[in-house]
Simulated scan of single mutants.
Amino acid sequence: MPSRLRDFDNAQLGAIAHLYRGEVYRSTIWRTRLDNTTNWSIVMMGIALTSTFSSHTASALPLLVVGMLLLVFLVFEARRYRYFNVWRARARWMETHLYAPMLRGQPLDPAWRDVLAADYESPTHHISFAQALGRRLRRNFIWILGIQSVAYWGKIAIHPFPAQDIHDLIGRAAIGPIPGVIVLLAGLAYNGMWIGVALWSWRVDRARWGPDGGGGGMG
């Protein structure tokens, strides 16, 4: 019998099994909520694309407005991901420190129960909001933002007729009294910021978990 596993009687092992099932269920529910915000973003992007490319005279402004909505959805998704990560981390902790050693017949790490108990006694998020933001960017939103950027440049490049030079692009990017060059620079800064956040979070995760993404702790 692996060390310290004998400390649990049948009733306690059954309770741990139910605890594991509960954590998997909660992580599944929150995973579904993550999918919802991604779906909202895709739907809004589809509406903006349809409106922008519906005619030669249609404005590119919907593609800019949807960028602000994407920011709101990204914030929602990052907040939800922090909660999802709590339940996921607990389930993975039990899988790697209880069930996997049991299946191999290996001794259990004596500290695994203490770490899990401390997490239940003093629950806290395992990653920061900025890390969650970066992870959701890398998984989903960086691609949606990329489509938005390509569509915007395509719109001002071909409608109402193919642009002849850079001056045409700058002129078409203007929004009312705001010069086109300001709009384009703001767009470059906006997308550059998200690329920077994604790269930063990737480096943080790589430094903490290694190149394969595996790790021995929660988060």
Rank of each mutant, 00 (worst) to 15 (best):
V115I: 06
L133P: 00
A118Y: 02
S128L: 11
Y81E: 05
T124I: 12
L137H: 02
S54A: 15
M68R: 07
T37H: 14
A117H: 03
E95H: 13
M44C: 13
A118H: 03
M94D: 02
W112S: 07
W93P: 00
D109L: 05
A78W: 09
Y120D: 01
N85C: 15
E121F: 14
T50G: 13
L133I: 08
A78S: 13
G105K: 06
R138A: 14
F53W: 15
A58W: 03
H56E: 12
L103N: 04
M44F: 14
A130F: 12
F84Q: 02
L63S: 01
L34P: 04
G46F: 09
L116Y: 05
Y120Q: 03
A118E: 05
M45C: 11
Y99I: 14
T52M: 11
R90D: 05
N36W: 12
T37E: 13
D114A: 15
M44W: 12
H126R: 15
A130M: 13
V66Q: 00
L103D: 03
L34N: 10
M94F: 12
L98G: 03
H97I: 08
E95S: 12
V66N: 00
M44T: 11
L71G: 06
H56L: 13
R138Y: 07
L34C: 13
A132Y: 06
F129C: 06
R92K: 15
F73C: 09
R88F: 15
R135K: 12
R136I: 07
A130H: 10
